[in-house]
Nucleic acid binder design. Structure first.
Lengths: 197, 197
DNA sequence: CCTACCGATCGGTAGG
DNA sequence: CCTACCGATCGGTAGG
């Protein structure tokens, strides 16, 4: 039961769609309005200007993807925690809405200072923080070799990010993601073999 | 002794600079011309249209960065080969011209189909091919544990790519890259510990 | 939410 | 390489 979308949300969704394809500059107010089915001037009843639309979208990008309840307990299970993490990451990579937001992120990252700062902070201090916490617990439990948990977390996350990037690129051109999709789990296995005691 | 640049090269350089900051759409023919010091119409004496400039730049992005002579011999040295690779990668990450081209790549990757295809092919079939060849030799020599060399090559390269991305983002805003810069070598060490027999 | 309109800027061409 | 110009499109406003 999708609830009735109000115009403001329609504008946001149309803008995400267009920016994900043509970037912020390419997503003109006119195109956004046309996609919604209104005149361009009507946009300004909902947003002060074009940039306000982008700001709203950016704030949607960084709604935390991962929130593990009972992190400490799950972390003690070692490998299965990493698998759970990877499966969650994979789901997000293939989620339609999240994928569009990921494209917006990648396109505007080099052109928008606020987005860059959010990326460097949020992306790190949310996913990596949780992951490093879990890795630290695994070290304490003697499940994995010791080391800097933050660094290890990045080692674990970076390949996932790279796979996600490839998935996103392949899907734009409607190419098969089957070969690459299995790499998520393969990475978790490889990483576990690398650090397990 | 930088040789005298001709106008065509000046146009390319100005375009790279502008596209790296504002994207292809934001880099108008007028701005490019102004940066060179000519009128916009004069651009068309050197390029049929704006897109031709971008095509030229894209072709510059994929000039192979790594060509290891005596790959087989070097690969037999195991860890020191990986370190050499990482140092080369790091140098490229901090090279001014290469960094600008990297930004152009990242900005346009989601908006330019030709660029996407080059990225998925060249980026893979050059760096990864060589790396996997080296890893295969290391396996034969009994230096590292066995596995799919292509997959392992990607596992090695992906974190380097992610670090490079972060370096690039930090440098746009003139932030310190000191903490992140050491991660290149740390990654090589971590990877070696992960696979070494 | 609409019609009507604004100045600025876009890629590109004509003609020299 | 220039001046001069083109139609198209841009973000945004006035007024209803």
């Amino acid at each position: 039961m999708p609830k009735q979308k109000n115009t403001k949300q329609k504008i946001i969704d149309a803008a995400i769609e267009l920016i994900a394809k043509q970037g912020y500059r390419g997503a003109s107010v006119r195109k956004i309005a046309a996609a919604v089915g209104i005149r361009e001037s009507a946009i300004y009843n909902h947003f002060r200007n074009k940039e306000e639309i982008l700001k709203q979208i950016i704030s949607e990008i960084f709604v935390t993807p991962f929130e593990f309840k009972d992190l400490e307990e799950k972390a003690k299970k070692g490998k299965s925690f990493l698998h759970q993490f990877v499966v969650a990451y994979k789901l997000i990579s293939f989620d339609k809405k999240k994928e569009k937001l990921f494209r917006v992120l990648m396109i505007e990252l080099f052109q928008n200072k606020g987005l860059r700062e959010s990326f460097l902070q949020e992306f790190h201090q949310k996913d990596i923080q949780q992951l490093s916490k879990a890795l630290f617990i695994m070290m304490q439990e003697g499940l994995i070799r010791s080391g800097d948990p933050m660094f290890m977390a990045q080692e674990f996350l970076a390949p996932l990010f790279y796979i996600r990037l490839q998935v996103s690129l392949l899907r734009i051109d409607s190419k098969s993601t089957a070969p690459i999709a299995t790499q998520f789990e393969k990475h978790a296995d490889f990483f576990w073999e690398s650090v397990a005691l």
